[in-house]
Design a protein around this nucleic acid. Structure first.
Length: 940
RNA sequence: GCGCGGGUGGCGAAAUUGGUAGACGCGUUAGUCUUAGGAACUAAUAGGGUAACCUGUGGAGGUUCAAGUCCUCUCCCGCGCACCA
């Protein structure tokens, strides 16, 4: 029965009780229980809790509460990632102290978080801005510096004009704008503090494999790291120097007809004296530098470049002289900044060679392995004797001529022709075609495919498959003869669509084109090596290593990943704990001087110069500790550094001796499930894995990988289906809805919209009312209490099972739907007192406030949240009568109610008497398919 | 271009993993209550047809007694990467 309630009053009351009793604090590890570490990404304290925070924290709370009720000791900590630009920008705007602004926001945000009624482990909280937190951030940095993981790098960095600071590669979006401010990133050359994440590239890639993460997240990280395996090869120059190139295709070395250097390649400037057209070259280099990233990345534009006159290289395989070019299609920052160009087998090289009329040399032929399978049931029959070698294409409609042979068991599909004797000349084909088909006007589209295995076809080990190593694609010019000439009674000749041909035969490589040798075509696949001296006939993969060995190269990998630039020319962050001696050498600040406090006597308005440079206090502090002439580092750290280890600090948040003791880590690590946003896939998630690995190598952590499982939730969209934004006026204010319908309703509604993983959902104002209505019905459920309730206990135990399963697979939506069905049933059939109390415990993780209230109303004294989650009684779940579908000739014609163990005869008998079925049972029943408890299908 | 996900009512979505497609909720329609509310309850709600029935999970084929689910091809959408050698 529907019964309204004052959610505001109930929720306030229980939140207060929970806080006073501290029932969600975890305290010390209790080894009598299993541990569960549930992590959500700590928020930035913007001072305004939005609906996304609700989705991020309140929905996982269902899982947390469930696990607690299942008897686990659950750590569900919450903290604040409080350094960063918003505080600084707000402080500038309002002329405030960022520290005070941040602390006020944290305090306010805590009250907002309390309104969620989540089971947070507040006793384990921390904040990145606390000095006893950033002390450890700094200390780790100094350790990293000593191990050469942190270094002062040179080179080109991303400058965000909006943020007035350098940012990392990961923080630049693919359109070249800043992830935070949306401003277009400029390239600047300036010294930078970097972390050597590239040193961990292999481990960051390889260690993904065993992780129980969604494949798409792992794949995104792999792509971001972008390992490619290949080799470095040295090319001698006419000047006596040598150039190292990186290539993934050393097997094409014999086809390398020129070299290309990035315009910024050091050898260009070094050879000013040797390059006769240096003026032209210098102009091009200057032009390339000016171009912004966008231009350079535009793949559609035409290739440009300049030949280095007077300098040549030697192809180490052939000993031939080849020219050298510079071009901006070669990036200085990737590989070695130089490539060997193989125009026959690389699209870009091919395009460049065409424009500059550089010779093209083919060194790889496509190996065609077509495995043709005749129609069905391969295991029954032997094979197609003859198969394709003439593929005859219709002059106008693109169809292919095939020969079908029907022998009763299956259909053989042939392309017309066949029976080649191994001759490969076009003439021979033409002759054969004329003889066999009478076609006289045709053109050969694909040339003969040559492979090391010669021509013809052969059976593979699998007797049902046929391997063809040559074939001919012929297009008719006109249709002056009818293909019917080929019909012989057993075979029919038909034109079929290309798509049907593909249906009948699958083959590897068909997407690459019909043949390897079409003039002007660039074949980028692997295959059989040709025109490469002693390596002819090998396949590409084998040839790679052998060719590298011959020319003294080295197999190696290169990565897309760049080192992590962490220095920020802004104020509100962790000061980089480095001081410089009078000679300018960097020294880490010893542990006894940490935390190296962020100075407060600073005008932090952004000027592009680090604000800390203006601090007199910092200058004095440095000199008084280290001596006259010593100067402090004035940059602060990227806030992604702060968040790279916060989950460790939660474990031991008051430890003044270590980041977190190994004993505490052993208690809780690894994190069992990490809920977060997709935007962190290649930022925070990658950085923190890297950080953990460095700590692991330093012996400071127990785990090589921090997160056992990861789940990316989706986004809550505005009611109009668009991303929420102030300008669109579609922003949902959670506080307003909490006030109106309560936290339990908002939380359950968010959980009810769809599976927690992946998708984005529009916030529907009608939908949230539906959930509130459900809770009001639960509130009135006690009025349905009876002594005997029809089947309610059965449904209850099914519901328990369903809810348990769904929570553990993060399908909260179907868990809620199951509970709704249960309530619908109770309203019609009643419920016993015991079952009512059991149901409240099932609902408790979803609606903690209301269930706490109803629990007390039912006369209980212990908190419902300290009770056990009900266990499903399997004996009650089994049905004694089930409704199964009856099909006649595969069509649904009715249902029958029978026992799941009913015999076929019993089911059949029931079906005969079933209305709707019997009228279809006119003829004799030829076959009965009966799956007990599932279906009865009668073939008449 | 390459790599991952997805396409099911008016909407968000279910479907025991090959066995009654559309659970649950929203919305809509009709009705009930001296009823004016952003209330509750009852019933209907994939489409077509008076009906019996027919058609339906992006499209085309296939396998099967039986396909949203498996296979082949194809179209579209989202995300990641992309002159990365």
């Amino acid at each position: 029965m529907h019964k309204k309630f004052d959610s505001g009053e109930i929720e306030k009351k229980w939140q207060q009780i929970w806080e006073e009793e501290g029932i969600y604090n975890v305290g010390e590890r209790d080894n009598s229980k299993e541990k569960e570490y549930v992590l959500v990404e700590w928020p930035y304290p913007s001072g305004n809790l939005h609906i996304g925070h609700w989705y991020a924290f309140a929905v996982p709370d269902i899982y947390v509460r469930y696990k607690r009720m299942m008897g686990k000791q659950v750590l569900y900590p919450m903290g604040f990632d409080a350094f960063g630009l918003p505080a600084e920008n707000a402080a500038i705007k309002r002329n405030l102290d960022p520290k005070a602004w941040t602390n006020d926001n944290i305090a306010f945000m805590k009250t907002q978080l309390a309104s969620m009624g989540n089971a947070f482990s507040w006793d384990k909280t921390t904040s990145s801005t606390d000095a006893d937190y950033y002390k450890w951030t700094q200390w780790m940095f100094t350790e990293f510096f000593r191990k050469d993981i942190a270094y002062r790098g040179k080179g080109i960095v991303n400058w965000c004009p909006g943020c007035n600071t350098v940012i990392a590669n990961e923080q630049v979006l693919s359109d070249g704008t800043c992830e935070r401010s949306g401003d277009v990133i400029e390239k600047r050359e300036m010294p930078q503090w970097m972390l050597r994440i590239t040193k961990y590239a292999d481990r960051l890639t390889d260690d993904l494999d065993p992780l129980d993460w969604p494949e798409h997240i792992k794949e995104a990280q792999r792509q971001w790291i972008g390992r490619s395996n290949g080799a470095t090869l040295d090319f001698k120059l006419s000047t006596g120097e040598s150039v190292t190139v990186f290539t993934t295709r050393p097997d094409t070395l014999y086809g390398a007809t020129y070299l290309v250097l990035a315009p910024e390649h050091p050898l260009v400037a070094q050879n000013e004296a040797n390059i006769s057209n240096y003026a032209e070259v210098a102009d091009y280099v200057a032009l390339a530098k000016q171009k912004d990233e966008q231009d350079r990345l535009d793949t559609t534009k035409e290739k440009t470049g300049v030949k280095l006159e007077g300098v040549t290289a030697t192809n180490p395989a052939l000993g031939e002289e080849i020219p050298i070019y510079i071009s901006d299609y070669v990036l200085a920052s990737y590989g070695t900044g130089a490539i060997m160009a193989v125009p026959a087998h690389d699209e870009r090289d091919g395009a460049f060679a065409k424009k500059f009329s550089i010779p093209v040399k083919q060194v790889v032929a496509e190996k065609i392995v077509f495995t043709g399978i005749s129609a069905p049931k391969p295991e029954k029959e032997t094979l197609v004797r003859e198969c394709v070698d003439l593929m005859i294409e219709h002059p106008t409609n693109g169809q292919f001529l095939v020969q079908k042979e029907v022998d009763g068991t299956h259909t053989h599909i042939h392309f017309v022709g066949g029976g080649t004797d191994g001759e490969s000349q076009v003439v021979a084909i033409g002759r054969e075609l004329e003889e066999e088909t009478g076609f006289t006007e045709y053109e050969i589209i694909g040339d003969v495919v040559t492979t090391s295995q010669g021509h013809g076809y052969r059976h593979t080990k699998d007797k049902n498959q046929l391997t063809i190593s040559s074939f001919y694609h012929i297009k008719l010019k006109s249709l002056d003869q009818k293909p019917s000439e080929l019909e012989d009674g057993k075979h029919t000749i038909e034109w079929v669509d290309k798509s049907e041909v593909k249906n009948l035969l699958t083959w590897e490589g068909h997407q690459k084109g019909w043949a390897a040798f079409t003039e002007g075509q660039i074949f980028t696949g692997t295959g059989v090596i040709i025109n490469s001296g002693e390596f002819d006939g090998l396949d590409s993969e084998t040839a790679k290593e052998k060719i590298v060995e011959k020319v003294g190269g080295k197999m190696s990998s290169t990565y897309r990943l760049r080192d992590w630039s962490i220095g920020r020319q802004r104020y509100w962050g962790v000061p980089i704990p480095i001081v410089y001696d009078p000679e300018g050498n960097a020294h880490p600040i010893p542990k006894e001087h940490l935390p190296w406090h962020l100075p407060e006597d600073v005008d932090f308005k952004p000027t592009g110069v680090a604000p800390l440079a203006k601090s007199e206090e910092l200058k004095k502090r440095t000199e008084s500790i280290f001596g006259a002439g010593w100067t402090p580092e004035v940059e602060t750290m990227d806030t992604f550094v702060d968040s790279s280890w916060y989950f460790l600090r939660y474990l031991d948040n008051k430890n003044s001796e270590e980041i977190a003791s190994l004993a505490h880590q052993k208690d809780w690590m690894p994190i069992d499930i990490y809920f977060g946003g997709a935007e962190h896939t290649t930022m925070h998630l990658l950085y923190s894995r890297f950080w953990q690995k460095v700590l692991f190598d330093l012996g400071l952590v127990t785990e090589n990988e921090p997160y056992r499982r990861r789940l990316n939730r989706g986004l809550i969209l505005g009611p109009d289906g668009n991303k929420m934004s102030k300008s669109k006026g579609n922003v949902i204010d959670p506080d307003e809805h909490v006030k109106r319908v309560g936290a339990d309703t908002v939380k359950m509604y968010l959980a009810f919209m769809g599976p927690y993983e992946g998708s984005n959902y529009p916030f529907d104002l009608g939908g949230i009312a539906g959930v509130r209505r459900f809770l009001e019905r639960v509130n009135g459920l006690s009025e349905h209490i009876v002594d005997v309730a029809f089947d309610t206990d059965k449904l209850l135990h099914k519901t328990i099972k369903k809810v348990s399963e769904d929570i553990t697979t993060f399908k909260f939506n179907t868990a809620i739907s199951a509970m709704m069905m249960f309530v619908n049933h109770v309203e019609k059939n009643g419920i016993t007192t015991g079952d009512y109390e059991t149901f409240l415990r099932v609902l408790a993780p979803f609606a903690p406030h209301l269930t706490a209230e109803l629990w007390v109303a039912a006369g209980k004294t212990e908190s419902i949240h300290l009770t056990k989650f009900p266990e499903a009684d399997e004996s009650l779940i089994v049905d004694d009568i089930v409704t199964i579908a009856v099909q006649v000739n595969g069509k649904m014609r009715g249902t029958i109610a029978v026992s799941p163990e009913a015999s076929e005869a019993e089911a059949l008998e029931a079906a005969r008497h079933s209305e709707g079925v019997e009228k279809y049972l006119t003829g004799e029943i030829r076959k009965v398919i009966y799956v007990p408890g599932k279906i009865l299908n009668l073939i008449v």
